[in-house]
């Protein structure tokens, strides 16, 4: 190794070192702007009140023009024998035994897109076909979609369904939060249809307060936890139940936002494009310096 090469390698190392220190300074600016989730819309689902009438399923079906099923289809109680998931035919489904008290004290609850505050699907989407709007809605633009289904991989609630049967224009199907309705100061179709007020629509901040008031007023009726208040950074749809409901239809989740898992890695690698550029510069210097060495060696060989 001659002097020139050592100098080059030193310079190269310095470049890499600079690149790794510099980005940490600008870290704060890359953090997501905190949004005002208290004023976004949300729904509180009180599973202790739900009677399993499936009116919400019917209303959702009609509002979103999903199927041609007759009304009687939604009055069939045998569906409770199995555990259903949302599908391309139903954005929401009601399952029985929503809480862990499975045999005695049967209870019901509906599941649908939770419209997370920090949605994993939105972070995953390659073209920004999924977006989080200011009303709290996670909405989908089929025109942009390329059909990679990474959103389905990312969703911790296993909600998005895919129109596999469509050969040409398959869509990702999930609850729209009746965006058109709530945009015009109306309630979502399912909330409107609920005969027992198991669903409460309102500002997310008010709903959280409301939920805790309910728990305090009847501590024997409720398990002391509002599901969705803090899970994965909070969700627009939240749940109350009479027992710990981390079992059947809702997964056990930490408070950490899911997008930060991947985005911290991504933004670490791509911070102002410095790490890739530093690697490029480093390799370029290595390549150049070794080449110079070889040339000199060859010249020396020729001379001797």
């Amino acid at each position: 190794m001659n002097k020139d090469r050592r100098k080059f390698l030193k310079m190269a190392t310095a470049t890499v070192a600079a690149a790794t220190i510099l980005p940490s300074v600008s870290e704060a600016s890359l953090e997501h702007c905190e949004e005002d989730f208290d004023n976004a819309f949300g729904v509180l689902v009180d599973t202790t009140v739900c009677i399993g009438c499936r009116n919400c399923e019917l209303a959702c079906d009609r509002q979103n023009e999903l199927t041609d099923h007759p009304k009687s289809y939604f009055m069939d109680n045998t569906v409770f024998d199995s555990r259903r998931r949302p599908s391309v035919e139903s954005y929401t489904v009601v399952n029985s035994s929503f809480d862990s008290s499975s045999t005695d004290n049967k209870s019901f609850g509906k599941i649908q897109c939770m419209h997370c505050n920090h949605p994993a699907c939105v972070s995953a989407c390659i073209v920004g076909a999924l977006t989080k709007c200011k009303h709290g809605v996670v909405s989908y633009d089929a025109w942009k979609c390329i059909g990679c289904r990474y959103c389905m991989v990312a969703c911790p609630f296993q909600i998005p369904a895919y129109e596999y049967k469509e050969a040409l224009k398959p869509r990702v199907m999930k609850c729209t939060f009746c965006y058109d309705l709530i945009h015009n100061d109306k309630k979502p179709a399912c909330v409107e249809s609920c005969p027992v007020e198991a669903l409460t629509f309102g500002k997310r901040g008010d709903l959280i307060k409301h939920a805790h008031v309910k728990i305090e007023a009847a501590p024997n009726n409720y398990y002391d936890h509002v599901f969705g208040e803090n899970e994965i950074g909070g969700t627009s749809w939240m749940y109350l139940a009479n027992k710990d409901f981390i079992n059947y239809d809702l997964p056990k989740l930490e408070e950490e936002k899911i997008p930060s898992l991947t985005e911290s890695i991504q933004h670490g690698i791509f911070k102002s494009f410095l790490p890739p550029l530093a690697l490029y510069g480093f390799l370029g210097l290595v390549m150049h310096s070794i080449r110079q060495d070889k040339k000199k060696e060859e010249e020396n060989d020729e001379q001797s």
């Binding site: 939105v122 390659i126 390329i146 059909g147 469509e166």
Partner: peptide, 22 residues
């Protein structure tokens, strides 16, 4: 890809999604 004919979409700047690993 469900909509393979849209495979060029990620190249259009208006659809860039820098948070997406994909």
């Amino acid at each position: 890809l469900g909509r393979y004919y849209n495979v060029w979409h990620p190249m259009i700047p208006s659809m860039w999604q820098g948070n997406s690993v994909l």
